[in-house]
Design a protein around this nucleic acid. Structure first.
Ligand code: ATP
Length: 728
DNA sequence: CCAGAGAGGATTTTT
DNA sequence: TCCTCTCTGG
């Protein structure tokens, strides 16, 4: 067997890599080589078991992880990179591939669109309008997260309906139903549908499931602790024949439960595959002993602490440096200067350093100071490139060249740039489309027809009709050209014909920057590598929806990384600055009144600490600006759990009482405010019975609760202290 | 129909 | 603070 493959593995890792057939569960702490094991195992299967790479499905959490895995495998095998390898990727991209391959069976056109959260919100808003529901009561964000929750538990509208009782939930069901109809009408899928459709297809179509069960002889899943029920169910279906399912995860690094990731998948795995081999890896190769000691001190405080002790193979190393600054500006200033110091005194480069934080908004101060000190950085996350207004506009035009039923894209640009099609015209078109169950484009075509003379033809008057017709001609023209043009030519044509530049310059802020963004869009399409051919736009648009910001992190350029703790999962840096370690920032305020969420915040801190190889900085401020006002902050409760002897600098007072006071203060604040009620809670009213809180508003010395009651008792408002409401 | 002003509401993490 | 929605006057 090939040395290079095995020489860098310890005994347990080897055991996992060379595991024979059958299920295996690898539970392992941070930096213990989980990713290395998965990668080596794939190479081992290919080299020793002679399994073709196309017959191994390896699913990761991010595209970046998948790409790194692929590159390392190509390197290990010493073969040139294979460009199209959809069987190694994220769950979502893998599912998108399976769906594309079988679009006929699913009654989808092959050029289906994938809707991102903006598109989803637009569909929900239209749905609410159609159902005449108030979007203050049914907030699109909330509705979408309920729908997404249902989908990740494999509930379609009908199965969702079976488990509900409140009037509020019944309306959610109505919304869910219409929302799905609109997606179908638009030949579009949302993120969760990629999983739903794949599950349905594998679950109900024997022929298809046989096909893939035979094709994918080995299935490997990374970051298993952050998979949800539907993902695990898809995995079980694929591995149904061979039982060759190999999952790797760390329950203590589970940080996506708010996105329905479900740690019980790990427990269920043990019972679903009771013959499963279980391997624990407990040596940390990444970090210094001090860093690991601090991480263990943090995580061991969790009541549901899954971890086995991990031990660092590295030396004690540097002490952890603790910094308290006055406010976020000083924090950014001190850290920026410190970064300048360490890159000039130490041998490390900017790309070995990361600044991490809980919320994207915290990056602002850093960006400001880093620019002023001319320290190059790459910001991960935030407003993503493909979500910018001008980019979404162009993408909407592009999507229409593939899919004229894409109502959301059509409505997005029907009056962009403004072309005399105003709200009332659009409303009439939408109404007619809804009534007749046809696409917006078809409705617009019918309503703008001049030759007819009947009721329908009177819906729009002549002025608007003319504008709509010229818009439709524009779309037809672009689509005709798209048959023969290259992608770059199509975009140029769109910009040209719509006078988009003019619109940017006259109507939007920062037109120069936006023009540059469009240039960048064109060049990223040109660089886009795929099987090529006619599929190019299609695959490009798919990647636009599925590819994330971290995926573009590159370490070829020597730049500092600014990143959220969530996105840092799986990465490693020589030096890490964990910032904003205040109670209210990390742990975030919104997790104060939930034990589970508080534990997840702690895991987030744990993930952050364990990203660092040699240097770790823990930074907090005394005062942090929120929106408009600024607040005094106390050190994060987590800081008190790290032994003093591991730390130099501005230490927190280690006395447990201080920590307890901080926690108590927060708790009593919540109590004075409200009995930890939030929207979505189930409550009981002495007179009206059970219901769900849909809104809480401040009201002098009291709180006004808006509650939706079961059955047909409707929606009512109460003052909290007068209502006799109790939480269920 | 359109643009711009002003009010008001909401603020975590993202495939 | 920033984004979204609504209103107003042209
Ligand atoms: N047997 C080994 N010998 C030397 N170095 C190793 C060994 N195993 C792993 N490493 C190194 O340890 C570091 C962490 O490995 P890897 O990223 O695979 O861990 P992980 O378990 O996936 O971590 P995490 O869960 O924290 O993302 C990497 O730099 C890797 O190269």
């Amino acid at each position: 067997m090939d040395n290079t493959l095995t020489q860098n593995l310890n005994v347990n890792q080897l055991d996992a890599v060379m595991h024979k057939d059958g299920p295996a569960l690898i539970i392992a702490g941070p930096g213990s080589g989980k990713t290395r094991v998965i990668t080596s195992r794939i190479a081992w299967l290919i080299i020793n078991e002679k399994i073709p790479i196309q017959e191994i499905a390896a699913l990761t959490f991010t595209n970046k992880a998948a790409n790194e895995m692929k590159n390392r495998i190509f390197h290990m095998l010493d073969i040139p990179p294979i460009k199209f390898l959809p069987n190694i990727g994220t769950f979502h991209s893998f599912c998108a591939y399976l769906i594309r391959e079988n679009h006929n069976i699913l009654n989808l056109d092959k050029n289906f669109a994938i809707y991102d959260s903006y598109d989803q919100t637009a569909v929900i808003k239209r749905t609410l309008d159609e159902l005449n529901l108030d979007n203050k009561l049914y907030k699109p964000r909330v509705v979408l997260s309920i729908i997404s929750g249902a989908k990740s538990k494999i509930q379609n509208p009908e199965t969702y309906q079976k488990n509900i009782s409140t009037a509020y939930a019944k309306n959610i069901y109505e919304i869910y139903k219409i929302y799905q109809q609109k997606l179908i009408q638009s030949n579009a899928l949302d993120f969760d549908d990629l999983l739903m459709k794949t599950f349905e297809m594998l679950n109900s179509n024997q022929e298809i499931s046989n096909l893939y069960q035979e094709k994918y002889k080995y299935l490997l899943i990374d970051e298993f602790q952050d998979t949800n029920l539907i993902q695990y169910s898809i995995a079980k279906l694929i591995a149904n024949k061979t039982n060759n399912i190999f999952v790797v995860g760390d329950p203590d690094q589970s940080i996506y439960s708010w996105r329905n990731a479900d740690i019980t998948n790990i427990l269920n795995f043990k019972s679903d595959y009771n013959k499963s081999k279980i391997i624990y890896l407990n040596k940390n190769y990444r970090s210094s002993q001090n860093i690991i000691d601090a991480s263990q001190a943090i995580i061991s405080e969790n009541a549901t602490n899954y971890s086995r002790q991990i031990t660092a193979i590295n030396e004690k190393g540097n002490l952890i440096i603790s910094i308290e600054s006055y406010d976020e500006n000083e924090e950014a200033e001190i850290i920026s200067k410190e970064i300048n110091n360490i890159i000039s005194s130490d041998k490390i480069q900017l790309k070995d350093i990361a600044i991490m934080y809980r919320t994207n908004a915290q990056s602002r101060a850093f960006e400001h100071y880093l620019s002023s000190l001319q320290i190059p950085y790459q910001l991960v996350g935030g407003t993503r490139f493909y979500q910018r207004q001008e980019i979404k506009d162009i993408i909407a035009y592009l999507r229409l060249t593939l899919n004229l039923n894409d109502d959301t894209s059509l409505l997005r640009i029907i009056n962009i740039p403004t072309r005399g099609i105003g709200k009332s015209t659009i409303d009439k078109i939408i109404l007619y489309a809804n009534k007749s169950n046809i696409s917006i484009l078809d409705a617009a075509t019918i309503l703008s027809d001049v030759d007819e003379d009947n009721e329908i033809s009177k819906i729009l008057s002549n002025g608007p009709k003319k504008h709509v017709r010229s818009f439709l001609n524009l779309i037809t023209d672009i689509n005709n050209k798209s048959q023969t043009f290259s992608v770059e030519e199509i975009i140029t044509y769109i910009i040209d014909k719509t006078n988009y530049k003019n619109y940017l310059l006259s109507s939007l802020t920062n037109p120069e920057e936006r023009l540059e963004n469009i240039e960048e869009l064109i060049s990223s399409i040109n660089n886009f590598e795929s099987e090529g051919g006619e599929n190019k736009i299609n695959l490009f648009l798919e990647s636009v929806s599925l590819i994330n910001d971290v995926d573009n992190l590159n370490d070829e350029q020597d730049k500092l990384t600014l990143i959220t703790l969530h996105q840092s999962k799986g990465l490693e840096f020589d030096s890490v600055f964990l910032t904003g370690l205040e109670d209210g920032t990390l742990p975030h305020v919104l997790s104060f009144d939930s034990e589970n969420e508080m534990e997840e915040e702690r895991r987030l801190m744990y993930v952050g600490i364990t990203r660092a190889k040699r240097r770790l900085y823990l930074s907090r401020v005394f005062k942090r600006g929120g929106w408009g006002k600024s607040e005094l902050k106390e050190p994060s409760r987590f800081l008190f759990d790290i032994p003093n002897e591991l730390i130099v600098g501005h230490q927190v007072n280690i006395h447990k009482e201080v920590k307890n006071n901080i926690i108590k203060k927060k708790e009593s604040k919540i109590e004075n405010n409200l009995p930890s009620l939030t929207a979505g809670n189930k409550v009981k009213h002495p007179h009206f019975g059970k219901g769900i809180i849909i809104q809480i508003e401040d009201s002098k010395d009291d709180f006004e609760l808006t509650i939706a009651f079961d059955e047909n008792k409707g929606i009512k408002k109460f003052l909290y202290t007068m209502s006799g409401i109790v939480k269920l």
